[in-house]
Amino acid sequence: MARFRYERKDGEFAAAMAAIKDPIAFAGTAAISEAGDIVKREGRADIAAAGFSKRWQNALRVNVYPRRKYSINAAALIFHNIRYAGVFEEGATISGRPRLWLPLPTAPKRAGRKKMTPALYVKTIGPLFSIERPGKPPLLAGRIATNRRGSKTGKVSLSALKRGGAGAPSTLVPLFIGIDRVNIRDRFSIRQITERAAARLGALYLKHLKV
């Protein structure tokens, strides 16, 4: 029977572990980075499929830590730059106080860089007038400038609304509709996409491990 004898040399085990530390750190970081890329790519496609703009798609971000170096403890942070995006992941019911005023297609989209709201309209354009409709949601209307015959000057425009709000001959045009609450259904699947990517981490780690 053959016998083998091993004599440990000081520092030998530590040196061996150090030799494989870098490949392990590289594989771990590369696996996390690739999983993050999968989440970003599939997540943005999911947001696009829900009908959201390029701005919403690109606002889904993935940061891998630590930055610009490899680590056994690498991690990915997945987040959306639009703070209320989670509403479309979970769904929600939003109630008014007492009403939510939603813009109609006739309302200006923005005032400068800010999204148009009734308060912003009053501040930047002119007064709003309440229109009560028995059995139907109420409306808020603004004044739009009219021509000499008392008719609207074609398409509702910001300049015509400003002239009407400033006192020019005008007529009322509905701009906002008031509702008690709005139910938002879940439209994103970012959590499921992340879970699928996380389930692939073992295979991705082996793919990048070079020892």
Rank of each mutant, 00 (worst) to 15 (best):
G135W: 06
M1L: 11
S151N: 15
S95D: 12
I184C: 08
E132M: 09
A2C: 11
A2S: 14
R41D: 13
G28R: 13
G150V: 08
S189W: 04
A199L: 11
I47K: 03
R8G: 10
S157D: 05
L60R: 11
R185Q: 15
S170C: 09
A19T: 02
I125E: 02
G154Y: 12
R149V: 12
T93Q: 14
R99S: 13
K136I: 01
S170K: 06
G11T: 00
G164C: 03
P138A: 15
I125R: 00
A107Q: 10
G167L: 07
K9P: 07
L128K: 02
R191M: 06
I179Q: 10
K21F: 10
L158R: 06
A16L: 14
A35D: 09
F129A: 04
R113D: 15
G11L: 00
K54I: 05
V173G: 02
I177T: 12
A203E: 14
R97Q: 11
G165F: 05
R187A: 13
F26G: 04
G126K: 00
T29Y: 05
E132R: 11
F129S: 03
D10I: 12
I131E: 10
A203F: 08
P98Y: 03
H208Y: 07
G164W: 02
R181E: 14
S157T: 15
I131N: 04
L175H: 04
R44G: 03
N81R: 15
A25F: 02
P66E: 03
V182F: 09
A15V: 08
D37E: 15
V182E: 12
A168W: 04
P66K: 00
R99Y: 15
F188Q: 07
N81V: 13
G178H: 06
